[in-house]
Amino acid sequence: MIATIAWKELKVLFSSPLAWTLLALMQLVFAWIFLGRLDAFLEIQSQLMLIANPPGVTEIIIVPVFAMAAIVLLMITPLLTMRLLAEERRNHTLILLISAPVTITDIILGKFVGLMIFFIGMIALVIGLSITLLVGGTLDFGLLLSNIVGLLLVAACFASLGLYISSLTDNPAIAAAGSLGLLLGLWVVDIVASDMDSFARNFSLLKHYENFNRGMIDTFSIAYFILFIITFLILTIRRLDGERLHG
């Protein structure tokens, strides 16, 4: 059932120009940063030779691309999640899903998985970009893998939060604004608390992502991401269930 709903989400997503436009624009942005970093690397390459233990091509080119990818994802996730439940409600199609012999958990997980498949496709584009560097040398695959895992987890966090906000309203625009606001808030937490070793920093998604970005797979960060995802998925399920009971 989850697969059926995920498949339907993808079909609806790709039948509108939104998904294609986003993919094209993002690829443009990533390629731009990638080429910019590549240029910078080629310029300083001769000086790097002089240092003992110089940073490699992965650190100089790929890491910044992934860092940017997380921020771009933060910006576009609300556009993708706003539809998920708010629009179903507005178009009266949520009734179809709820009347069908599927549980609300199936519906929510289906939507989440559908969006994650889209994100995986998008991340694959970034990976593809990185792999092209193999033409001129070798890569630090450990660092690349840690970046991929981090980006996947952070994308899943964005998706689950967006899904929850979308379940609160029947207006897609409000859902988008709400998710963007909250996601930016979680980012700003990091900036506000950056210089001190404060408790608030632990709540910043991008601070946890930075660890992965540097190639450090921290179990605390993994636990935080997974708890974040599960919390918002459960909140969404409870919200839809509560609607049946109270509203």
Partner: peptide
């Protein structure tokens, strides 16, 4: 329901197949 729960961006066949799979 009162308002038919239709996905406007699907074709009739796609939509009915999806409903059948849901069931």
């Amino acid at each position: 329901p009162e308002t038919p729960p239709l996905y406007q961006e699907m074709t009739v066949d796609e939509y009915l197949k999806f409903v059948a799979k849901l069931h």
